[in-house]
Amino acid sequence: MKKELKTFDDPKNVKILLRIFYASLVVLLIVDLFIHKHADFPWEDAPNFFAAYGFVSCVLLIFIAKILRRFIKKDETYYD
């Protein structure tokens, strides 16, 4: 039997991964303040606009999807 990978089962590794992830978020927030922008719209010049937009978009996406589910969810045998 081939050896199994278990890297992501170890909570320690997951923790490290999450820390790297959070650190990269902070780096992105800082870097954004120092770059020159060539925007089509004024709000693109606002600091960290895309971070806020990405976060809000995904939260909205999930909550709207949850509401949508109430209306469209049917049993798997619905069409049979």
């Binding site: 992830f21 895309f50 990405g54 976060f55 995904c58 469209i72 969810k73």
Partner: peptide
């Protein structure tokens, strides 16, 4: 930024149990 903070939303929602559970269902 757009992608990573979208991922952050995913992380926080999964960890807080707010992510819609996977279900055996048909969506109209």
């Amino acid at each position: 930024q757009l992608l990573m903070f979208g991922a952050l939303a995913f992380c926080l929602l999964i960890l807080s149990g707010n992510y819609p559970a996977e279900m055996r269902a048909i969506n109209l």
